[in-house]
Amino acid sequence: MAKGFFIDLTKCTACRGCQVACKQWKKLPGEKTQNWGSHQNPKDLSYITLKVVHFQEVVVDNKLDYIFFPEQCRHCVSAPCAMQAAKPGAIIQDEATGAVIYTEKTAELKFQDVADSCPYKIPRMDAKTKRISKCDMCLDRVQNNKLPACVLTCPTGAMNFGELEAMSAMAKKRLEEVKKTTPKAVLGDPDDVRVIYLFPVDPKLYHQNAVASLEAPLMTRKQLLAKAATPLRRLFS
């Protein structure tokens, strides 16, 4: 069955348990960082940092807010990166879960093409091996009936994982609740992705790529999606 995440940002406290749990499960090394005048670190995703929590101080309606965005691959329902990949077997979509998986063959892809195809600018390349990496939904865990590491560690209930249909329903229900107090709350591209964020305020305040932009990449993606409409996609249209 197709799987999905629901990430409720109203409940995210930026404890960064998810960011660290990801590295722990994946046995990825820590990056050599410096404090750059923010609590956010590393500054961005990298080949060895597949999940990063962004911190933003924003003033909305004259009120200070401190908002957090645990960024990761959205595992698109129809993944543009997989569709454009010229090398078979480099980017595959797991049939059972829908997880988008980058293999060692990504070293043979043109990184820029992969990066450009992603509406959320997630993929990162290793300068040495030229391999490309990103979140793989902890497919090894999921196939063994375990939650992804980031979801398991989340203390507040911000991170949820399960059947995509159930996650989508949970997101829509929670949105209705949140809207009562925060009318501008939205879900991020809920029909197109397997990682559905609930943004209580304008998604662009969290990150420039928090939702798919209206510019070129999305158009490309829309075209791709039109070609590759799946039964799953129809579930949400």
Binding site: A14, Q19, P29, G30, K32, T33, Q34, N35, N41
Partner: peptide, 26 residues
């Protein structure tokens, strides 16, 4: 304190994943 370190940091300052998140005195 910060979330990412524990007490004087002895159990966390040797830990790369945590030092990565809060690397320096601020």
């Amino acid at each position: 304190r910060v979330t990412e370190h524990w007490q004087t940091g002895l159990m966390t300052r040797y830990q790369d994943w945590l030092v990565e998140t809060e690397p320096q005195m601020f």
